[in-house]
Design a protein around this nucleic acid. Structure first.
Length: 226
DNA sequence: TACCAGGTCCTCG
DNA sequence: CGAGGACATGGT
């Protein structure tokens, strides 16, 4: 027993083939341009290559704001922060919790998230202020552990930051990924088990991991709308 | 009108 | 450990 269980054997036509499914998703949905950066008007732009320190910070903030929240609401909150010119670790650190929570109000859970952003911003300043160099500097495992130690940053948020802002090859598991697996009869108990399943079956490529997760989200969203 | 959205933490058995 | 509840807004 390897921890993987099969919900209903009769429902499975073919076993889940992680690499083949990627090709299939890629062909169906095309390149996704993730993580999306937003303009002050809320327009969607691909994140810069190479990654800038400012864009990386925006991705990290977005990762916290999107916790159990529709992305359209996150865009409004990010636009507020940009309009107020406070989308930097330094500016956020100097805001009051009250004014910060007011700015991010549209993204929901605003009191919790204001604290989480404050904790993350102050931590990042202590690390030198640049998430990119911070993520590259530490050994891979340590970078993740350090993020998980921050209150309000769980495995998905940490992995999203590391993969999309830090350029680290770690696979992001979210609700869509679990339902994607469930669709092919694959089930696990923990986040780490899902992550290991994908990472054991794919080459360690940042671009591949970024795109695969984005494609799974595209798959999940399209499926919802049917 | 209810239900849901790119989670995380806390508490209780 | 694992289940259950709290956290909150905006769209359908």
């Amino acid at each position: 027993m390897n921890g993987q269980t099969v919900a209903d054997e009769r429902a499975i036509v073919k076993p889940m083939n992680v690499e083949r499914l990627y090709q299939q998703l890629s062909k169906t949905y095309g390149y996704q341009h993730w993580w999306p950066i937003t303009t002050v008007r809320g327009e969607r732009r691909p994140s810069p290559r190479p990654m800038t320190s400012l864009a990386a910070f925006e991705i990290c903030v977005g990762a916290i704001l999107t916790q159990n929240t529709a992305w359209t609401n996150v865009v409004k909150a990010l636009a507020n922060l940009k309009r107020a010119r406070v989308l930097t670790p330094h500016s956020i650190s100097n805001l009051s919790i009250n004014s910060l929570s007011h700015l991010i109000r549209p993204s929901g859970f605003f009191r919790q998230k204001a604290h989480r952003l404050m904790i993350f911003s102050r931590w990042l300043l202590k690390q030198g202020g640049s998430f990119v160099s911070c993520a590259k500097r530490a050994p891979p495992k340590k970078a993740r552990t350090d993020l998980l130690a921050l209150h309000g940053i769980g495995p998905e948020t940490a992995d999203s930051m590391l993969l999309y802002a830090g350029g680290r090859p770690t696979f992001v598991i979210d609700a869509y990924t679990k339902s994607f697996c469930a669709h092919y009869g694959v089930h696990f108990r923990s986040y780490d088990d899902y992550q290991k399943y994908f990472m054991d079956r794919l080459p360690r490529s940042v671009k591949l991991f970024q795109e695969y997760h984005a494609l799974i989200v595209a798959w999940g969203k399209e499926r919802r709308n049917r």
